[in-house]
Design a protein around this nucleic acid. Sequence first.
RNA 1: GGGGGCGUAGCCCAAUUGGCAGAGGCAAGGCGCUUAAACCGCCUCAAGUGAGGGUUCGAGUCCCUCCGCCCCUACCA
Length: 822
Amino acid sequence: MARPFNVTEIEEKWQARWADEGTYQVDNDDPRERFYALSMYPYPSGSAHQGHVRIYTFGDVVVRYQTMLGKAVLSPFGFDSFGLPAENAAIKAGSHPRVFTEDRMKELKASLLRLGAVYDWRREVTSHDPKYMRWSQAIFIAFFNAGLAYRAEAAVNWCPGCGTVLANEQVLSDGTCERSGDLVERRNLEQWFFKITDYAEELLRNLDTLDWPQRVVTMQRNWIGRSEGVEFDLPFANDRSKAIRVYTTRPDTGFGVTYAVIAPEHPLLEELTTAEQRDGVQALVERASKESEVVRTSTSEGGIALEKRGAFTGSYVINPFTDEQVPVYVADYVLGTYGTGAIMAVPGEDERDFAFASVYGLPVVHTTQPPEGFEGGAYSGDGAHINSDFLNGLDVAEAKTKAAEYLAEHANGIWKVNYRLRDWLVSRQRFWGCPIPIIYCDVHGTVPVPDDQLPVLAPDDVVMDKSGQSPLATHDAFRNTTCPICGGPARRETDTMDTFCDSSWYFLRYADPWTDGKAFDPAEAAKWMPVDQYVGGIEHAILHLLYARFYLKALDDLGWAPGLPREPFTRLFSQGMIRLSGSKMSKSKGNLVAPQEYYDFVGADGLRLFHLFAGPPADDFDWNDQTDEIIEGCGRFLDRFYRLTQYHEVNFHDGVDEGDVEVRRAVHRTILRVTEEFEGWSHNIAVAALMELFNTVSKWARSDHGAERTTLDEAIDAMLKMLAPMSPHVTAEIWEMRYPDKLTVHRQAWPVADPELVKHSTITMVIQINGKVKARLEVPPDISMADAETEALEVNAINVALAGATPKRIVSRPPRLVNIIV
RNA sequence: GGGGGCGUAGCCCAAUUGGCAGAGGCAAGGCGCUUAAACCGCCUCAAGUGAGGGUUCGAGUCCCUCCGCCCCUACCA
C-alpha cells in the first residue's frame, strides 16, 4: 500500500517514546483515581499470532481509554512461563526448557511491542523467575500448614502421552487428554491436592456479584454443581445393624426404589458380594479400576454396553419406605468419589436407573404421576405423587420435605448439600514447573521446606524423558536431602505444581512486584485490587478463573490479604476466538496467521483497527480470503483521515453557518456514541461511528462552500482523541504535528459531549396508514401526542391516501411515528 | 441427552431494545484524475431479515414449531 505517511517510522518513533518516557508506568502512590486493567498473561509460545493481537489490542484500548478518562491505570505484563510444551520441545531439541522458554518470551515480547501496546514493564512477572517461585512455594506451604494442601492416594487421570497426571479439567469429554489427545488412563497414586471444595459455597454464591459474561458465570456454576439432597441408610436385609449410606436429591421417590447400586470401589462391596456372584463382581471391578472417570460415566455411543457395566452382588437391602428387600448391584457408573458412593435406584423417575433396570429386568414403579401422553420410561418432572402411601397427592417439593422428615426418623436421614466440584489435584510429574517445596523424613513425615531455603530450584543437569516419573525423581543430588527438623536423611518431593498455581496469584504480584519479604504487601495490593477489567479468552472460563478466585479467598483466610477483596476480578471480558475457515486457530493445528506481514502491510494501527472493527469483540471471527481486504480498508481509513488532517484539500470560510452547526452536532453525537460503545464493548460500532463522522466532516470540509476553521479543528481533535486508544501511533503523530507544544494526544482528556449539541432540533416522524409508511414529517422532538396526530392528518399525502375514509384508530408514538388505522 | 448462542445485501456487520430494514466496511459496477495503470475522489448497485405459524395498529426484535451452523456440558444420584 502506498501510504501518505511512513508507517514504520512513526510506529518506531512513538513506541520508543512510550518506552523511554515510561508513559504508562504508574506508581502505587499515584494520586489519581485508580484503574486496574489486566490482560491474561500469555504462555510464551513464540511469535505472536492474531489471537494475541486481538486480546492485547482490546486490553490496550482499555488502558489508553481509562488513562484519558483521568485515571492512574495499572497495566502490567508478564509470562505464564512454566508448562509442558516447553519441556516437550526441549526434549526434542535436546536443550533446556528455560533456554527454550526465554527465547520464546523474547520473541513474543518483540512481536507484541510492535503492536504498540503499552505496559509498565517494571512490574513484569514470569512464573519461572526464582523470585516469583519463592512465593508460589511459600503459598503452597501456607496452604499445607493450614490443611488446605494435603496428600492423598487417589485414582487419578494419567496421560500416557504427557507422562503425567492431569486435573479433571484437563480431560476432555471423550476421555482424552486436552493436550496430547491420548486416551487418559486411571491410576492410583499419591498426589497433592488443594482443598478448593472448602470454598465451593462461596465460589458459587459470589458469582452473582460479578460483572462477567453470563455464559462464563453459568459454566462456573455448572462446574461447581451444587445439589441439595438427603443422605440416609439402606439397612442390610440380613443384618439390620449394618447399612449402605446413600445420597439422593429425590427423597420423595423413595417408594419407587426397586434396587440399590454401589460403586466398584465402595468399601462395603466385598462384604456384600456373595460367593456365587464373586466372579462377575470381580471382573467388573477390575475393568472399572482401569477406566478413567470420563469413560466410566459415558453412555454415548462407543461406550461400553450397559449389559457389561453392572453386576448383582447377591445381597439385599431394605427400602425404609416400604420395608421391602431390594437387590444391591454394583455398577461402574456410580462413582466412589461423589456423594456416598452408593445410590438408591428409582427407575420410575430416573432415566439412568430406568435404562439399567430395563437391561437387568428390575421392576419399575412410578411415584410421580406423569402428564397425559407421556411416553418416556422415566418421568423426572413435577406432578402429584402416586404409589407412595403418605406422600400420595403431594407435588415434588412438598413430598421431598415430608420424605426427608420420614428418613430423618427412620433411616438416619439428614439434609446434605453436595458439590460436583472436586479438590484440585496440583501434582505434576514433570520438570518444567514450580517444585513442590516438601521434604519427606522417615521420622518426621511430611515437612515443608523452611522459609529461608526457598525457593526450591530444580537442578539444570536433569535427564528428561517420558518414563512417567518426574525427571527430578531420578536426580539423586536433588532428591536426597536432610530433614529440616532432625537433620537426618530425607527425600524431596519431586513433583512440580500445576501451572495454574502460578497464574492464580500473578495479578497480586503485579500490584506490588518490588516487595522482597512477602509475596505481596497487602496494603500495596489493596491500592489496585480488585482488577477493574480483566480481558482474556473464553478457554479460561472455568479453570484459571476458578482457581484464582479460590487463591484469593484462601490467602485472605490465612491472613495474607487483609484489606483485599475476596473476588479478584470485578469485570471480565472474554473476547471471541479467531478461526481460520471455520476451525479454531491454534499453534497445534498449525493454522496461525502471523501478524508480522500485517504490521508491514497496514501497520500496527491498521491491524489494531481491524481487530476492533471486524465484528463484535465477544464474537468469534472467521479469518478467510476476504479478511485481507477488510484489513486493507482499515489502513485506507487511517490514510484518508491523515490526509484530511493536513488540510491540503480543505476550503475554509469565515464565520459559523448552518453547515458548521450540523457538523458540530455530528461531532458531539459521535462522542456520545463512541463513549457508550467503548463502555459496552462494541468497538466495532465505535469504529463505524468514527468512519461515519469522518465521511460527514470530510465531505463538508472539501465542499466548495468549505469549512469554518475552529469547527473543523474541533472535529479533527475530537476524532484524534477518540481514535487515539485504537490507533495510537498515527494519532499521536498527527496530534504532535498540530500541537507541538501540548501534551500528547494520549495525555489529553477524553472528549465530553455537549448535551445541547447532542439534542436533535427536529426528528423525522413517520406517518403510516395501516402500518405502511405514507409520509414523513420533520417535527420537534418534544411534540405532543395531540399535535403529532393533528399534524399527521394535515399532511396532504395522507389526505390523498385516506381518500375521505375516517380513521378507526390512531396509534401515536411521538416523535417517532403516527399510525392511522382505517 | 442437557444448557447457551447465532442465522439481516455477494461478504463482514448495524438497526434507538416492539416503530422508516442500513450506520460503517469489503467486493462489484460507473464516472472523474492519469499518456496509461495503481493510488485517490465522487456516484451507483443490492437483502425484506434461515422456513412456517402466532401475538400486535406495527415483529429482524416477543412466543411456538422446524431447518442449518457453532460453543459449552455430559450418567454427579
